[in-house]
């Protein structure tokens, strides 16, 4: 087992454990903190795949901006952890069963797929994840979606202000 595999397994196990803790923990603030750890693990995976630009953007946008927004909202609402509404035990059990069935079904499907046999993911090599090729593609082939996304941001900003203003 080489270093890459050890890192892959360690990051995967860490991400899955933290994602489970997001669901298990009762306090919403703890859930946010566990989710931030999941995002850091996913950024580690991006670095393993040599997608350095996406790793940095993932940390800045998700762990930095979006999760801080979540924390702000939770602290603004001052939600007590003991009066959080709980679903019935049967509903929870059925939910876990449904999610587990989905996982089992999809894993069985992937295991059967012959097209994926022997396909390798290129790790720690290749330059497409660096900022120079990505920026070139973004501002030549994808310049129209880029401009449209700025309009999307403007509309989201206006919408958030209007909804929040009451």
């Amino acid at each position: 087992m080489n270093t890459l595999e050890i890192l892959f397994y360690a990051l995967s196990a860490f991400a899955v454990i933290c994602a489970s803790m997001v669901l298990i923990s009762k306090n919403p603030i703890h859930s946010v903190l566990w989710l931030i750890l999941v995002f850091f693990a996913i950024s580690g995976h991006y670095i393993l795949l040599n997608a350095q630009f996406l790793a940095i953007v993932n940390i800045i946008v998700y762990a930095g901006a979006i999760m801080v927004l979540f924390l702000f909202v939770i602290m603004l609402m001052n939600v007590k952890k003991d009066n959080e509404p709980q679903k019935k035990l049967l509903t929870k059990f059925i939910g876990v069963l449904a999610g587990g069935s989905l996982l089992t079904l999809l894993i069985a499907l992937v295991k059967q797929t012959s097209q994926l046999e022997g396909k390798q993911v290129l790790m720690k090599e290749g330059t497409i994840g660096l900022i120079h090729p990505l920026g070139k593609a973004l501002f030549t082939d994808y310049v129209l979606p880029f401009e449209i996304s700025s309009v999307l941001f403007l509309s989201a900003m206006v919408g958030a202000v209007i909804i929040g203003k009451k």
């Binding site: 997001v22 669901l23 946010v32 979540f70 909202v73 679903k87 999610g99 587990g100 996982l103």
Partner: peptide, 23 residues
């Protein structure tokens, strides 16, 4: 797939709107 299924389970089992959003 494991991460995705954990998210699906969270949406199905929690009633806190913020947790659902995080999933």
């Amino acid at each position: 797939l494991t991460l995705f299924s954990i998210g699906v389970i969270g949406v199905l089992t929690r009633r806190n709107a913020i947790i659902v959003f995080m999933c």
